[in-house]
């Protein structure tokens, strides 16, 4: 009899792992809380650093053949309970399912920018998040709608909800710096006359070709980078946004009026992480994400044999890192289930 694998979350990690486990001959059930598969990637316009069309990449993952895979939509999993070599998975709506192994691919949630009240999101009209900007690029192919006219100065604020002790997230979300550079370029392409400023603490261009994108932003797009973290934003009578930062490299306070402010919101652990951890008896890390039993040697394995992790549920990752992680998780699941079958 084929072993049953449940994959919690049909984002790119879940889909990638599903297709591999499927090809290995396992029975796979994808459990998705939304009405469709794909997760966040469905909202992105272009991907860094090569500005690849996000829909193409999503299609590439979604269109992989899934012979023995069934998908449950609108099922938000709240608990995974180990029971007699099996796992009982329960969703919010009362749906219950049994599996021989579980792969958690619940991904991340975007930081709620309203929690950073001093930045004015949800208070001032012209403060938006990087995710909203992405949607605007994708749907409207422009941001004029939001402002009502062509913007002449836009600021991108790095590290919103990341590296911030005051909202309880000390970690770096890894993808926002390069996303900001990518979005700055896209904005500049839309509005060649517009001045674009990135307000950053540190520029973490750690991935391959990121630094090149940064250089390109300076060289070809004249994006300006100001090393200073935004303390607070205010709104003037015309609805423009006044920002105050310290130009730390010059050692002087800097005031700037912007037509629009884009907040680079970071990743946070998804809401159901805590309840899944407590029901399954697996560990939550200090940053709120799932904890692998050994992040070096067994990054996909939890403290409970049979429950595995892949993708951003175990910390911020890029799309390519997420996909690699999903593939390695599929191998870990396979080696667990075949060892079980031999016993």
């Amino acid at each position: 009899m084929n072993k049953q694998v449940a994959i919690i979350g049909a984002g790119i990690a879940g889909l990638e792992a599903a297709s591999i486990l499927d090809s290995m001959g396992f029975k796979v059930t994808l459990v998705e809380k939304a009405e469709h598969t794909g997760g966040h990637i469905q909202n992105w316009h272009q991907l860094f650093p090569d500005r690849r069309n996000a829909t193409e990449v999503a299609q590439g993952i979604i269109s992989k053949p899934l012979a023995n895979v069934s998908t449950e939509f609108n099922r938000e999993v709240t608990s995974i309970q180990p029971f007699a070599e099996k796992f009982i998975i329960s969703a919010k709506d009362g749906w219950v399912f049994n599996a021989d192994a579980v792969l958690i691919t619940t991904g991340f949630e975007l930081f709620d920018a309203k929690r950073k009240e001093e930045y004015g999101y949800g208070i001032y009209d012209h403060v938006i998040t990087s995710a909203e900007l992405e949607t605007l690029f994708k749907k409207e192919n422009g941001v004029t709608l939001r402002i009502g006219r062509t913007p002449s100065r836009i600021g991108l604020v790095h590290c919103v909800g990341s590296r911030d002790e005051k909202i309880g997230n000390i970690f770096c979300s890894k993808v926002c710096c390069v996303t900001a550079v990518k979005q700055a370029i896209e904005l500049k392409e839309l509005y060649p006359e517009c001045e674009i400023y990135c307000l950053y603490m540190d520029l973490r261009m750690s991935g391959r070709h990121y630094e090149e994108l940064y250089k390109q932003a300076q060289e070809e797009y004249s994006i300006q980078f100001i090393r200073g973290r935004l303390s607070e934003a205010a709104e003037d009578k015309s609805g423009k946004i006044i920002v105050k930062v310290e130009d730390t490299l010059l050692g002087r306070p800097l005031k700037m009026t912007m037509d629009m402010l884009v907040l680079m919101t970071g990743m946070v652990a998804s809401a159901q992480t805590a309840s899944i951890c407590s029901s399954a008896g697996i560990q939550k890390d200090s940053d709120g994400f799932f904890k692998a039993s050994d992040p070096h040697l067994y990054g996909n394995i939890t403290g409970i044999p049979g429950i595995f992790l892949a993708g951003t549920c175990s910390g911020p990752k890029t799309i390519s890192d997420t996909l690699s992680d999903a593939r390695s998780a599929a191998l870990a699941v396979q080696s667990y289930l075949s060892a079980e079958a031999n016993n």
Binding site: I123, A233, A234
Partner: peptide
């Protein structure tokens, strides 16, 4: 109060 703009507004 400047760090709680919603109150000011």
């Amino acid at each position: 109060g400047h760090l709680t703009p919603s109150v000011k507004k």
